[in-house]
């Protein structure tokens, strides 16, 4: 997976709570057997009308958010189904960082396994980012090494992330390879259990 250390990008504000993975990628697109190509279906039912035409009233379709790579949303982002197609779709669309006031557990994990950085900020900080990004073209920097989010003016916030996940993201490690360094312990655990 691609490491992420510091990322500067255009913010896309999605001012909603409880955005579930059924919204992020509806089920009709889960039938593919590869990890690629899910971006065109991201937020499908919100982005497109029943004829498949882009809806002009959904903000991700606004030209000013072209090239966005940082999504900012409300509470409980990524709740519902465990489908990893959700982070795949976000990533394939171009998102590298998701900022929310809280995340669902499985989604959070799925992000960190795919090189997407989930950042938890307070509700007030989220509102500030959303206001800015709704008003103008707004760019921020997310610095994972120093666990900071800042813009060129006054916004400067720190965030936290479990160390393990931080290291994974910073280094882009293959987790299975890391685990296999403990293979002896797994062997031993199995041996002891089968005889207990």
């Amino acid at each position: 997976m691609e490491p992420i250390r510091k990322h500067e990008g255009l913010v896309y504000p999605l001012n909603r709570s409880n955005i579930d993975t059924d919204q992020i990628i509806p089920k009709q697109f889960l039938k593919r057997i590869s990890r690629q190509g899910f971006g065109e279906f991201l937020f499908y039912n919100w982005r497109f009308d029943s004829k498949g035409e882009p809806r002009s009233d959904f903000s991700l379709n606004f030209p000013k958010y072209n090239g966005t790579s940082i999504l900012v949303a409300g509470d409980n982002f990524g709740c519902g189904s465990s489908r990893e197609h959700a982070p795949w779709a976000l990533q394939d669309y171009g998102f590298r960082v998701i900022i929310a006031s809280s995340f669902a557990d499985i989604f959070y994990n799925n992000c960190t396994k795919n090189g997407i950085l989930p950042v938890q900020l307070t509700e007030d900080q989220i509102s500030e980012l959303i206001d800015q990004a709704e008003a103008k073209s707004y760019t921020i920097t997310v610095d994972l090494e120093n666990k900071r989010v800042y813009d060129n003016h006054n916004f400067d916030a720190s965030f936290d992330l479990p160390n393990y996940q931080r290291e994974m993201l910073l280094n882009g490690w293959d987790e299975i390879a890391v685990t296999l360094t403990h293979k002896n312990k797994i062997d031993k655990f199995e041996e002891e259990r089968e005889f207990s």
Partner: peptide, 30 residues
Amino acid sequence: DSHTSTHGAFGALAFGIGTSEVEHVLATQT
């Protein structure tokens, strides 16, 4: 699958995982 929690009815510790974790469990059983 997120509804793996169902199996908790038996006093098992059961939870849903993403596809990367599926691969990890297949390869390492952990």
